[in-house]
Design a protein around this nucleic acid. Structure first.
Length: 598
DNA sequence: TTCGACACATATTC
DNA sequence: TGAATATGTGTCGA
């Protein structure tokens, strides 16, 4: 990929971003903060808002695979995908990193620049497919992951808040309409945005944390499908994220490693004050990387501010700014752009670096003097239709889940569900411009429509839905956006510098505290959330026998049990409502398509 | 070495 | 203010 960096289209898009991005993200950021706004903004700004930041893995410019046009053929549509990862990722050694066990969230939408707001919706329209024009009745999006430069699909899973105790599914294709806008609106009113919540990688990248070994990278991709009259779903566009490192072990493990590695100073392990921390930049003192205050941001939203603020403007809990961030805030958006000179062969796509040891440029930004691999143009976000809604395939929100089968066929692979999930190795994604390859790909998609596998998948998903309903509250109020109730609280906590068993301050709740020792760890480095070094006790000793003070919820196991029961009995308290982007992901829509299309 | 499961800690919301 | 909830993360065992 050697283009798009300066895509005028993309560049101009940034002007669609809200001006006060920091504020916008801080206040909405796809979190329950949006709820507060919907509630009238009565709540004070909480830490989750304060610490909202703007960096997260960017997406490379996308790729449209087929011509799409208006029904009268008078207008060719350019399908532009935009996506952003809202939480879970942080920069570590200049790699976008997350923990396998932690959640991340991805919002995506697409838009058609040729259509103004008034002209939306986009369907029906025509798709030029195999030399024929077929009618497209709707579009769907899905997310997936794969190994960078490889064919192997990486499973993504979504959990309910109950995590292990709840069901888990793979991200499903979600109906979506053109006109989405990922800009940080003040509420959850951004229409036509699909948000995948509580997503985790099923597996970690190989060799992460092993500096002498080749670091494996994953990439998240967002696919846009067009559903035709026949029910076939044809991949028409997609975008890939920056290379991602997925850590499989606890943060403490990496903290130790990084403390020993000067080059990882950017990681900063909380208690230390590595270069990255003291300077509020994730970059090591390496000339290759731009200063923190530069405009090297992958976040077009942030960029719209001129990029003249520090990287971690809102680190408020410690002067040694936390190098890990993401904190549930906005991130990077990218729009896909054009089909020419774009090669999606996984074997040679350069939607990421090829050199695992040297970043070609800022991981924060594809702009500036960086090699093409990290060039990401400014996003031209979608339109903002006056009204509509977005779907969100959160586990608590089967809203977008096609319960009734219909034309859906997304119950297989997490990345390309049309494939039997049990054969992920067969999921070769030849995102090539090569027509033959593409046809082959689409043929696979098409062939997967209907048939036994489809039925089976549908049934499987029906089962999943049934399970989900146990844990998924329905929104008692508005079936659409705007409901102040039932939002799923989002937290942006901080990892505290937890106790040291060695120091005899092991956590009482920690099993090992009873008979073993634990190394002191500095701030745990989750990319998603950080528990700030406790103001009252950065390291404390707790009794082996939990006290109410320590376990207000009754302690681990009991608390968990209580939590489950509460979750079942108090569904309304869990979710439903509005997310920062799009409509609630934490609610169930009885008929998502009707709502979406209404 | 990786990952699932269990459990604790704590932020956030109600 | 306490309970409930959500989620990061330490630890153990397979």
């Amino acid at each position: 990929m050697d283009e798009q960096a300066g895509s005028p289209d993309m560049a101009t898009g940034s002007d669609r971003i809200a001006g006060d991005n920091i504020a916008a993200y801080a206040s909405s950021a796809h979190s329950p903060t949006s709820e507060s706004m919907l509630n009238g903004g009565s709540r004070n700004r909480k830490r989750s808002e304060v610490f909202a930041t703007h960096e997260s893995p960017f997406f490379f410019p996308g790729h449209q695979l087929y011509n799409v046009m208006s029904m009268d053929r008078s207008t060719n549509y350019t399908l532009k995908l935009a996506a952003k990862i809202d939480r879970g990722f942080f920069l570590a050694s200049n790699d976008w990193t997350c923990y396998r066990r932690n959640y991340f969230q991805l919002s995506t939408c697409f838009y058609i620049p040729e259509l103004d707001t008034a002209q939306q919706p986009d369907t029906p329209c025509l798709l030029e497919y195999n030399g024929e024009l077929v009618q497209v009745n709707r579009f769907l999006v899905c997310i997936g992951a794969q190994i960078q430069h490889g064919d192997k699909a990486i499973e993504l899973v979504q959990h309910t808040p109950k995590r292990d105790k709840g069901p888990q599914i793979t991200p499903k294709r979600m109906p979506v309409r053109a006109g989405g806008d990922l800009s940080p609106g003040p509420t959850g009113l951004q229409p036509y945005v699909v948000t995948y919540e509580r997503v985790q990688f099923k597996t970690a990248t190989a060799n992460n944390g092993k500096r002498r070994a080749a670091q494996q990278y994953y990439q998240v991709h967002v696919d846009l499908f067009a559903e035709t009259d026949t029910g076939a779903q044809i991949l028409v566009a997609n975008i890939f994220s920056a290379p991602l490192v997925v850590r499989g072990r606890s943060p403490g493990h990496y903290a130790d490693n990084e403390e020993e590695d000067a080059t990882a100073a950017a990681v900063g392990a909380g208690t230390s004050s590595g270069p990255g921390t003291s300077s509020s930049t994730p970059y090591p003192s390496d000339e290759r990387y731009p200063p923190a205050s530069s405009s090297y941001r992958n976040d077009s939203i942030s960029s719209s501010n001129g990029g003249d603020y520090s990287y971690y403007p809102n680190y408020g809990y410690n002067s040694s700014s936390y190098p890990y961030q993401s904190l549930g805030s906005a991130s990077h958006m990218a729009a896909q752009d054009y089909r020419e000179d774009y090669h999606y062969n996984n074997s040679n796509n350069n939607n990421g670096r090829h050199d695992s040891e040297s970043y070609p440029g800022s991981p924060l930004s594809p702009t500036g003097p960086h090699p093409h691999a990290y060039m990401t143009p400014q996003v031209q976000h979608g339109f903002s239709p006056a009204a509509s809604g977005a779907a969100s395939p959160d586990m608590n929100s089967p809203s977008g889940f096609p319960e009734n089968g219909g034309h859906y066929q997304q119950y297989g692979s997490p990345t390309y569900p049309q494939y039997p999930q049990q054969h992920p190795q067969d999921q070769h994604h030849h995102y090539s411009q090569d027509g033959q390859q593409q046809q082959q790909l689409n043929g696979q998609y098409d062939s997967y429509n209907g048939g036994q596998q489809y039925d089976q998948d549908t049934q499987d998903h029906a089962s999943q839905l049934a399970a989900l309903r146990i844990h998924s509250p329905t929104s008692p109020s508005s079936p659409f956006i705007g409901s102040p109730t039932g939002t799923t609280p989002r937290r942006q906590s901080f990892s505290s510098a937890l106790s040291s068993k060695k120091a005899g301050s092991g956590s009482a709740g920690d099993r090992s505290s009873i008979g073993s020792t634990r190394k002191t760890r500095s701030i745990s480095m989750s990319g998603i959330t950080k528990r700030a070094p406790s103001k009252t006790r950065t390291s404390r000793t707790v009794p082996a026998t939990p006290t109410k003070e320590h376990y207000p919820n009754g302690g681990g196991a009991l608390g968990s049990i209580g939590g489950v029961l509460g979750g079942i009995g108090g569904l309304g308290g869990i979710g439903g409502g509005i997310k920062g982007l799009g409509i609630s992901s934490d609610r169930i829509l009885e008929n998502p398509m009707e709502e979406l299309q209404s």
